[in-house]
């Protein structure tokens, strides 16, 4: 589904943020990407739907080359859902209108169909009663669940999560993770940048560990948590699993 081949990316002339990254996510697979901050994991996931350009290598999504200038990027992006660290709901639109906008403007759905779909997804994330509210009236956890529903409204073939719980208060993290766990169990193809190792342990098929722009470890979950091969991954795990 997602193929990342020898991807290189620089910020400016000298700082290389991604170094020869190669990995893939198969259909129905859940892959967690972790690593210390500044390791390039968020950058990598943003390259998958070309929110960030790459300077070397290539990325294909469902057979379509992302870094081909001829690719219709809006169309390609509309097929992959993305959830951001800071939710990025549209603050001037009501919750239901946040869910309707791209359905109508990108997919051309009728207003009533988009509303029906939006309400169904809001019900699924437990926020049906909040449809008429504005994003600022919701808690962080609620906003992030709306953001997931908004992405799902596009019937995506895969979902990208960029640190979906990093900006949340601890008591709100689980409500978001619950939605993500359900999604994973339903067979959604997911690439998730997160530090939530509990989540990884529960639903990930594979775990990728990145450090300083490199993919240091790319292993099946059991292998990663059991016997990580690299020193750096071991150190990272021991630090975040200490408490």
């Amino acid at each position: 589904m997602i193929e990342i081949n020898h991807v290189n990316k620089w910020y400016g002339p000298s700082f290389q943020v991604l170094k020869d990254c190669t990995t893939s996510v198969a259909k129905g697979e859940v892959v967690v990407v972790c690593g210390p901050s500044g390791s390039g994991k968020s950058t990598l996931i943003k390259c998958v739907n070309a929110l960030e350009p790459i300077q070397g290598g290539d990325i294909t999504l469902d057979g379509v080359k992302v870094n081909d200038p001829k690719t219709d990027l809006p169309k390609l992006r509309s097929r992959v859902g993305m959830v951001f660290q800071h939710f990025e709901l549209f603050p001037h639109l009501r919750i239901i209108d946040n869910l309707r906008l791209a359905q109508e403007k990108v997919l051309g759905r009728k207003a009533e169909d988009a509303t029906a779909k939006g309400m169904k997804l809001l019900e699924r994330v437990g926020l049906k009663d909040h449809a008429k509210k504005f994003p600022a009236e919701l808690s962080g956890g609620q906003q992030q669940r709306v953001a997931i529903a908004r992405a799902l409204a596009m019937d995506p073939i895969a979902m990208l999560f960029d640190e979906p719980t990093s900006a949340l208060d601890p008591e709100m993290i689980s409500e978001v993770l619950d939605v993500m766990v359900d999604l994973a169990r339903e067979g959604m193809t997911m690439m998730v940048v997160t530090h939530e190792m509990g989540f990884a342990n529960k639903v990930a098929d594979r775990v990728i560990f990145m450090d300083r722009g490199e993919i240091v470890e790319d292993a099946k979950k059991a292998d990663f948590f059991g016997t990580p091969r690299s020193d750096r991954a071991q150190k990272f795990l021991s630090k975040i699993l200490q408490h």
């Binding site: 739907n49 929110l51 859902g81 993305m82 951001f84 906008l101 791209a102 403007k105 990108v106 908004r150």
Partner: peptide
């Protein structure tokens, strides 16, 4: 914030739509 047009793009909105609606 840059995240707003990024979220609009991620949903498949074109540049013009992202400006117009977001």
């Amino acid at each position: 914030s840059k995240g707003q047009p990024a979220a609009a793009s991620a949903l498949g909105l074109t540049y013009a739509q992202s400006m117009r609606y977001v």
